[in-house]
Design a protein around this nucleic acid. Structure first.
Length: 618
DNA sequence: GCAAGGTC
């Protein structure tokens, strides 16, 4: 009997289906000489400090550096505190029984670092010695699965991948557990002050943005605005220069030859420029982009959206949600026309679905090379029935995005008119010539400036037009907006670096903070710790968050770059570099950060008592 | 009491 173990039930079911195995048992599926079983993500975790004898939080325990780490069954929180998850225990027992009966194990956890770790932790925890092979596939289609099983790899080929995963796991424990205890103890141990490779840089981003915003001093500046009339159609133009000094603006303002000052045709058209601009459709959604859209449209938190999606996934309405890919392969694309056909009866999208059936589909989101463990989020084709309003809303975002992604580009005409009247003025206008993908949701554009005209009249160079109104506008520079869930998720993808270019952002996916599957949890952790809170739609630091930030802001643990440098080393380990060297470095770093925090937290105790002043001055 | 990672 061969045992196939997948990362999650849905994958095991898919594999069993391809083999024609139909014997549904408790915790596995049997048939054709195979048993297909599964984990539920990580079933095992590194044991907590008390299992190495570090009972209670004590200064003399620090730094805690276990010679050998232990594994423990995943715990859940109940009213009696942390207890072993009974479902996990049960599944582990099933896996153990199957491993014991097996002649060979086939590892079918997700093809990546954590997938490898999920299996190896189970294998070593159960003290299993059976030989194992690795299924390594990047698409879940029948053909890809069959091909993968014909090409099983020796299990030992992935030893270095396991090494890198193992180092990631232990390093996070060492730095997180020690730093957390060190800071909490030195601050007087009145509450948990958690720190970690991901959560602390995230907190730092929120705090530094908050402080920057609070300390922002708006600068006044002046602009001149005019309104012109072309055969009854009015349009606006603003001065090409901004003025810091009001008097300078006033001088030019007085020179504007408007109708009110006795000039019937005082605006001279110097130049007219009209250029077409093409906008490709957006890529399909991955988890993060969908969480951002749901937050912008509906105000859902990242965590709420993830839960709604998980629910839709369990009802088989959408594909696997915790994906970091915004692409699909050609095999999946082959099923897209059918998905679109099914939407012709949809109340909002029916017309666009019908249109798409008549034109070639845009293939921007089709790229097998950019699909990793899971492809972009798509509807499955199952017909939803009586969804709750919030589930329907998320489902519609998945469906709507699919229609957009395969739609045609949007073509606009961008017009710029230069006008002279004492000084120079510019009128901008954008007209959509062919809406393309934008006709699916009919959204207004985000980056529309208020000086933009909805449409501009046809004017000719040299023409003289009446200026019916003029104004000296007083404006203020604005601070960067506070983070909300959408902008924070976006920032986490690129470790806080601001990169607008979609392709470039995508290239940085592997060096982000956290992973698609964990980012919602990071935000919730910071809230649970009372480090940040939601204020309307913004995420703002609390007193406590700012106080902790103040202590750690210059430390390595608060820098997003820490993840980047670890990732680089972990990748080297995956290619065969020394594990011992990395462990020694982490051990040294753990010692130094623990030492520093034990000292630095001393001044924190009194700060944690809220005072009436503005928290930003801490 | 604590990390980050995965998923029901």
């Amino acid at each position: 009997m061969k045992i196939v173990i997948a990362e999650k039930p849905s994958v095991a079911r898919e594999l069993a289906k391809v083999f024609g195995a139909t014997g549904k048992k408790d915790g596995y599926i049997e048939g054709k000489g195979y048993s297909f079983t599964w984990a539920f993500g990580h079933l095992l975790q590194l044991a907590p400090p008390q299992e190495y004898g570090f009972i209670g939080w004590r200064r003399q325990h620090l730094p805690m550096l276990p010679a050998k780490f232990k594994l423990a069954i995943r715990k859940i929180k109940t009213k009696d505190g942390l207890v072993e998850d009974p479902g996990v225990r049960k599944q582990l027992d099933i896996i153990k029984k199957l491993f014991d009966e097996s002649t060979e194990i086939i590892v079918a956890t997700d093809a990546g670092r954590e997938g490898e770790l999920i299996f190896r932790y189970i294998y070593y925890f159960l003290k299993c010695k059976k030989p194992f092979k690795r299924l390594w596939i990047s698409s879940q289609t029948d053909e890809a699965i069959k091909e993968g099983f014909r090409n099983l790899k020796p299990g030992t080929d992935y030893d270095t991948l396991f090494n890198s995963a193992h180092c990631r796991s232990e390093s996070d424990w060492l730095v997180g557990m020690n730093a957390t205890q060190a800071l909490s103890i030195s601050a007087g141990a009145r509450s948990v002050l958690s720190l970690g490779r991901v959560q602390t840089p995230t907190l730092a981003m929120i705090c530094s943005r908050y402080i920057e915003t609070k300390n922002f001093v708006p600068q006044l500046y002046y602009q001149l605005g005019i309104q012109l009339d072309k055969d009854g159609q009015l349009f606006k133009a603003v001065s090409t220069v901004n003025f810091n000094v009001k008097e300078e603006a006033q001088v030019l303002f007085d020179k504007i030859e408007d109708v009110g000052s006795g000039f019937p045709n005082g605006g001279k058209i110097l130049d007219v420029e009209a250029k077409p601009r093409k906008e490709p459709p957006p890529l399909l959604h991955d988890l993060s982009s969908l969480q951002q859209e749901a937050n912008k449209r509906k105000g859902y938190t990242a965590d709420q959206t993830l839960n709604l999606l998980q629910n839709l996934y369990e009802s088989k309405l959408v594909s696997y949600p915790r994906t970091g890919s915004r692409y699909i392969g050609d095999d999946v694309f082959a099923g897209v026309p059918q998905l679109i056909t099914q939407l012709t009866t949809h109340p909002d999208f029916g017309k666009q679905a019908e249109f798409l059936m008549t034109v070639p589909l845009n293939k921007r989101s089709v790229n097998a090379k950019k699909v990793t463990d899971h492809h972009a989020i798509l509807p499955t084709g199952e017909v939803p029935y009586q969804l709750s309003a919030d589930k329907q809303a998320v489902y519609d975002m998945v469906v709507g995005r699919m229609l957009e992604a395969f739609h045609q580009e949007c073509v606009k005409e961008v017009t710029k008119i230069t006008i002279e009247s004492g000084s120079l003025f510019i009128a901008n206008g954008t007209v959509i010539r062919s809406a393309g993908w934008r006709s699916v949701l009919n959204d207004k554009e985000e980056d529309k400036k208020d000086e933009d005209n909805p449409s501009l009249p046809k004017v000719k160079k040299g023409e003289m037009l009446p200026i019916v109104e003029k104004a000296l506008l007083e404006k203020q520079t604005k601070p960067k907006p506070l983070y909300n869930e959408a902008s924070l998720l976006k920032a986490l993808e690129t470790s806080g670096k601001e990169i607008e270019d979609e392709e470039l952002r995508y290239a940085m996916k592997d060096s982000g903070l956290g992973t698609p599957a964990t980012r919602a949890a990071i935000i919730e952790t910071l809230i649970t710790r009372d480090y940040i809170m939601r204020e309307k739609r913004n995420l703002v630091p609390t007193f406590k968050g700012l106080a902790v930030y103040d202590v750690v802001k210059d430390q390595k643990i608060a820098q997003a770059e820490l993840t980047g440098s670890w990732e680089k080393r972990l990748e080297e380990i995956r290619s065969g570099a020394s594990v011992a060297d990395f462990k020694a470095e982490i051990s040294e770093y753990t010692k130094s950060i623990t030492h520093e925090l034990l000292a630095a937290g001393a001044g924190l105790a009194e700060k944690l008592v809220p005072k009436k002043e503005d928290p930003a001055v801490v």
